[in-house]
Design a protein around this nucleic acid. Structure first.
Lengths: 225, 225
DNA sequence: GTCTATAGGAGGATAGAC
DNA sequence: GTCTATCCTCCTATAGAC
């Protein structure tokens, strides 16, 4: 306000983060330039390097901020489910594990009151992106959460091999990623498309995921070969 | 060889396509420069603009070439399934529709003898990519195929609403995309991981997809609200 | 038809003024 | 701590030589 030059404020840093996040969602990481970011945040071009050191470190921080919150919610939900199961002296159900993992993601994605509701679209496509730098720290941020959830699934599905569960978890992440990226992509491919109320997405996705997770195991033609 | 200057040949054009495809898979569309492409193809920098007009048109042609073949195989498979169903005077089964759509994609992705086995990784992540130019022509290339398959699914699942089928189809595309991008991403997130024989991927994915597609429909809490 | 050379602009990063 | 000015690299595209 009274300060000379461009808009300054105690929240310069978070303005950059928000602007970068929005632009990454809209254009992708590579296609978003520092100039676009600083223009949108209404800060100087040099501010990114001053506050974050480099574009790569800014990217890292954009992801770290949201992932920390998302995984904290997921682990809290899993803790609660496990506590409830222990209290009732019965094992954890697969559907509870899925709820704890995917509901926070979908809520973050569909609740527009939440700051990061567009971030989930970015996250979903980043798993399969080739950028090795991003994938590496994504794996680090996820390590603990994924360990906990895979262990919970192993326990909830005693008859199923770990390899199979790993694959099915991976498939579920893919379906969820598309569910979140969802509406626009779907509309693009099929003109029609009226019903996309976000509150319907969760039951829709959950019933699909559960159906896939509990599907009969494929049989190997072991005899051949 | 005897020609002056750089390597020339009757297949300059396809050498550029192959080099571009490989680099797009590895680094992404934006991160791949014309210099990288022409260096790998061992042709001159100007060759891309000469043969294709621009980088965007080259991208388009990389996708068009493989998608045309993929969708031709898919439609042929669907034709065959429908002919068989007609001959036996019974309706088409959902599993047959899925087979016809997803098996050609997985075969293209896992059969290394096939030229485009890496292309499918690129395709899977492109649906959700923000680049509007690519998404637009992807929708065009897919229009006919998607119409045929959605119609077939509507017929095979008479009790299920079109909206629901559309969503589930979308979820299945997501799961398949991750299945194809698959192995490296999975390995990255979980150290362990031995069993990734590609011939096991198809039954694995199909049983998951079928389970999801035939899952009980979600109930709306219509009474509330 | 294919290559060489270069134009013209955008990218990330930084040195030094204030 | 923030801004201005600028460096150098890399991009796509093209004009003109051969």
């Amino acid at each position: 306000m009274g300060t000379p030059g461009n808009k300054i404020g105690p929240e310069t840093r978070s303005r950059i983060l928000d602007a970068a996040e929005a632009l990454f969602v809209e254009h992708g990481l590579d296609a978003t330039s520092m100039r676009m970011i600083t223009a949108r945040a209404e800060v100087n071009l040099a501010a990114v390097n001053y506050h974050f050191g480099s574009k790569d470190k800014l990217i890292h921080e954009v992801f770290r901020r949201r992932l920390a919150e998302l995984n904290r919610m997921r682990l809290a939900a899993l803790d609660e489910m496990e506590a409830r199961a222990r209290a009732e002296e019965r094992p954890l159900k697969p559907s509870q594990v899925l709820e704890a993992f995917f509901r926070p993601a979908l809520e973050m994605a569909t609740d527009t009151r939440h700051g990061g509701h567009t971030f989930m679209r970015l996250l979903g496509r980043t798993y399969t992106e080739p950028n090795s730098f991003v994938r590496r720290f994504l794996a680090e941020e996820y390590a603990e959460t994924l360990d906990r959830f895979l262990a919970a699934l192993y326990g909830a599905l005693p008859g199923v091999s770990r390899t199979e569960i790993l694959w099915r978890f991976h498939f579920m992440m893919g379906a969820t990623s598309y569910a979140i990226a969802g509406t626009d992509a779907l509309r693009l491919f099929t003109g029609e498309f009226d019903d996309d109320a976000p509150e319907r997405l969760m039951p829709r996705l959950m019933s699909f995921l559960l159906g896939g997770l509990r599907a009969p195991l494929p049989e190997w033609k072991e005899t051949e070969e």
